[in-house]
Computed example of a mutant assay.
Amino acid sequence: MCRDYLRPALLIFVSIAIGVVGWSGHVLLLPVALGFPLLWSISRTRLVAALVSAGYFLAASRGLPQGVAAFYSSDIWPGLLLWLCASLSFVAVHTVLWTKNSGDRPFRYLLAAIIMSIPPFGITGWAHPATAAGALFPGLGWWGLGFMTAGLAGLVTRIWPAVAITFAGLWLWSAASWTEPGLPNGWLGVDLELGASLGRDAGLHRQRDLIATVRNAASDGARFVVLPETALGFWTPTVARLWMSASGDTDGTVIAGATVLDAAGYDNVLVAIDRKGESSILYRERMPVPGSMWQPWRSWFGESGGARADFFANPVVSVGASRAAPLICYEQLIVWPILQSMLHHPDLVVAVGNGWWTEGTSIVAIQRAAATAWAKLFAKPLVIAFNT
């Protein structure tokens, strides 16, 4: 009787540990997440598989309750509710597709992995083990993703020890020779430490400070300067004129986050301002944060507001002579935006975020690690700009 309870308890404990360590914000620890498929496959009942899935996902996304509480300046209960609700899709998919039949298990797990990669379930498809492909197969691109897929299938079969040993060897080799993705020539990402005021302080003084920051970067030789998400606040004609008039004093192009507001809602965007004094909306976020930004249920009740999700729009954008794959904040945590962008053969990845609300959590570190892993997998230079 004791053994009947000890084994499930041990599997759940290990799944929590895997979620904590694998998603700690260090790119070379991402392969630890590959332990989840193994634990899922050796669960003896559907209930244990559900609890293992819940333990892994809740541990991996453990920063959400505290982050939501900080974002809304509220107590922790709304964050806990969102945390539990977000886990439902992950747990439901892996519970429904679990099977005792070892012959069907690889196909069932791969189906679960695919479902959690694309909408609608992929909208909350955080902590996807496939993200570790960049740490194990750097530079191999789609071949590396294929090897990872085959390895995930192998981990849920009886040959899992051989697969695990192979992955461990690749992991050690990669760690021994690891280098961070390079910065594209002439590009610079500017990290800011302006807290919650970034994007909310629309005063002239703040805009001039940002312009001075860009000028300093351009004077050091940067031709493309990237500022974090929502750095410019609301993109109004007045703000546009200010930045366009200032652009003639620099030799660089500014790429910065902003918010475009209209009667129906708003878009979280990247705008580009070049040295000729011309500006344009470069990119509209494909997947804003569900709940806090993207609120599709408003339209069901005839209400407006919330951020628009463009889902599969603008996977790559042209910046000068280069093609960039932009990822704004939440898009770095899920799978389909980066893979859709890579289908269009970009020259570099641009990852921006505004993570002031994540203080005390590992969320920003996880975003950076995920963006780094995908850039390494496809051998793309990476530009990162975050505000904390």
Rank of each mutant, 00 (worst) to 15 (best):
M1S: 14
F13Y: 08
S15V: 03
I16D: 00
V20E: 15
S24R: 04
H26P: 11
A33D: 11
L34I: 15
F36R: 06
P37D: 11
S41C: 06
S53M: 04
F57W: 13
S61W: 12
R62V: 00
R62C: 14
P65A: 03
G67I: 10
A70P: 02
S74V: 06
D75H: 11
I76H: 07
P78Q: 01
P78A: 03
G79E: 05
L81V: 13
W83C: 04
S87D: 05
L88K: 09
F90Q: 10
T95R: 00
V96G: 01
V96M: 03
W98V: 04
R105S: 04
P106W: 07
F107D: 04
R108M: 15
L111E: 04
I115L: 10
M116P: 13
S117N: 05
P120D: 01
H128W: 03
A133E: 00
A135Y: 08
L136D: 07
P138L: 00
G141Q: 01
W143K: 13
G144S: 06
T149S: 08
T149L: 08
A150H: 01
A150E: 05
L155S: 13
V156D: 06
T157P: 09
T157S: 13
W160S: 01
P161D: 08
V163A: 00
W173A: 01
G182L: 11
N185G: 12
W187C: 10
L192N: 04
L194N: 13
A202L: 13
A202F: 15
I211T: 03
V214A: 12
R215I: 12
R215P: 08
A217N: 09
A218K: 00
A218V: 00
A218F: 06
D220N: 11
G221K: 12
F224H: 13
L227I: 06
P228E: 01
F234P: 13
T238Y: 14
S245I: 07
A246T: 09
V254T: 11
V260I: 14
L261V: 14
D267A: 02
G277F: 10
S280D: 12
S280C: 13
L282V: 01
L282D: 03
P288H: 03
P290E: 09
S292V: 14
W294K: 07
W294G: 02
S299L: 14
S304D: 13
G305A: 02
R308E: 03
A313I: 01
N314C: 09
N314K: 05
N314Q: 15
P315F: 03
P315Y: 12
P315W: 07
S318W: 10
G320K: 11
A321P: 11
S322T: 12
S322Y: 12
L327T: 01
I328D: 03
Y330L: 00
E331C: 05
Q332P: 04
Q332L: 02
L333E: 11
V335Y: 10
I338A: 06
Q340N: 15
Q340R: 14
Q340P: 09
S341A: 15
S341D: 02
L343A: 01
L343F: 07
P346C: 02
V350Y: 04
V352E: 09
G355C: 14
W356C: 10
W356Q: 04
T358E: 13
T358R: 06
T372H: 09
T372C: 01
A373E: 07
A375K: 08
A379Y: 05
F386A: 07
N387E: 09
